[in-house]
Nucleic acid binder design. Structure first.
Lengths: 158, 158
DNA sequence: TCTATACAGGACAAGATAGGTCCTGTTAGA
DNA sequence: TCTAACAGGACCTATCTTGTCCTGTATAGA
C-alpha cells in the first residue's frame, strides 16, 4: 500500500481544526477537540511551524494559528512538512543517492516521471477542498470568515 | 516521505528485465542480471503472477514471461500487485475502516479526493515509459519487438 | 521582577512493518 | 524416474513510525 504516515493525517486534522473557532489555539485545546493525543499534536505543530504553515507565539496567551487560509495550503505542502520531500523511492534525484545496487539499477531516474505526476496531483488539492468534503454541512459555516474564499471551491476542478 | 515499498521498485526492475532477452526467463537468471537477491525475485514474481502481470510455467524449461507488453502495464497495476490497493491512509473507503479515533475524525472520506488524484496519475504512466527513461539509449533497441508500440511514447503526454 | 503559561528541541522506548531467507510440496520436461 | 523450476507458506531480523517524556526558552500578566 502506498502509505502516508499517520502524522500527516493528524496534521490535516489539526490544520482544519485551526481554521475553526479561536484564531489562536493551544496544544491542549486542539488535542481535546480533535481527539489526537496531546504530545502528538505538539509534535505535528512543531513540524508545521518549522515549515511556515502555522505561526506560533510563546508565553501566556500563546498558541498556534494558521499562517494562511486552508485554500492556500496544497496537500503536498503538508506532506512535505511532516514526511519530508515527496519521493516514492530512495532512487530519486535530489535525495542524495546511496542505493546499494545502483550499479545494477537500470537507471536512477526511473521513478522521476511517477514522482512528478504525484507531486502535480497533490499540488492541485488544497486543505480547503478536503475540509469541505470531510465536514458535516452544519460545521462548514464554522470556518473563520477570513479563511473562506467563496469561488475557490465551487468552481474548482481536480 | 511518501513511501513505496522496495519490492515495488524491484518488481518494475524485474518486469523491465522480462521485456528484454529471452521470452521465458528463470528466477536465477533474472536475479543475476538485475542484481536483486534470488529469493526476493521469486517473491516478487509470485505476486506478479497472482495478479496476472506475468505468466508462469513450471518444470524444466519453465520460468516467467510477460503476460502483456510493458506499454500495457500502468504503474498503478504494479503497485497494486505488490503493495495492495492504492490508498494513502487507513481511513479510506473500501479498506474496511476500523479507525480507533473514528468518532473524532472529521470525516472518513477526507483523503478520497487525494487517493483518486494519485490513482489517476499512476494509471497514466506505464512501464514502457519508465523503461525508456531508465535505459541507456543503446539498450532501448534490446526490447522484444512485440513489446514496442512506436507511437505510444513519442506522443505520450503526462 | 517574578511566576505561570506555552512552545522548542531533543532523546528514547515500544510496537508494527517491510525485507529477506528458508523449507516443503507440486508440476512438467527429459 | 529424475531433475529443474515454480507455489505457498512460515519465520526471523532490522528498520521505521508512533507516541511519550524531559529540559530549556520565551512571553504575558501580576
Amino acid at each position: 500500500m502506498l502509505r502516508l504516515s499517520k502524522l500527516t493525517d493528524y496534521a490535516v486534522v489539526v490544520l482544519i481544526r485551526l481554521a475553526q473557532g479561536e484564531a489562536v489555539q493551544t496544544v491542549p485545546l486542539i488535542a481535546q477537540s480533535t481527539g489526537v493525543p496531546e504530545p502528538t499534536v505538539a509534535k505535528v505543530l512543531k513540524s508545521l511551524s518549522a515549515s511556515g504553515l502555522v505561526l506560533s507565539s510563546r508565553g501566556a496567551r500563546g498558541g498556534y494559528r494558521l499562517a494562511q487560509t486552508l485554500f492556500d495550503i496544497p496537500v503536498s505542502r503538508v506532506i512535505a512538512a511532516i514526511d519530508g520531500p515527496i519521493a516514492l523511492t530512495a532512487c530519486v534525484e535530489g535525495t542524495g543517492g546511496g542505493c546499494s545496487s545502483e550499479s545494477h539499477c537500470p537507471g536512477s531516474g526511473r521513478w522521476n516521471l511517477v514522482n512528478q505526476a504525484i507531486h502535480t496531483a497533490l499540488s492541485r488539492i488544497n486543505l480547503g477542498d478536503m475540509a469541505l468534503i470531510s465536514l458535516p454541512n452544519g460545521l462548514q459555516t464554522d470556518f473563520h470568515p477570513s479563511d473562506r474564499r467563496a469561488p475557490a471551491f465551487e468552481n474548482r476542478e481536480l
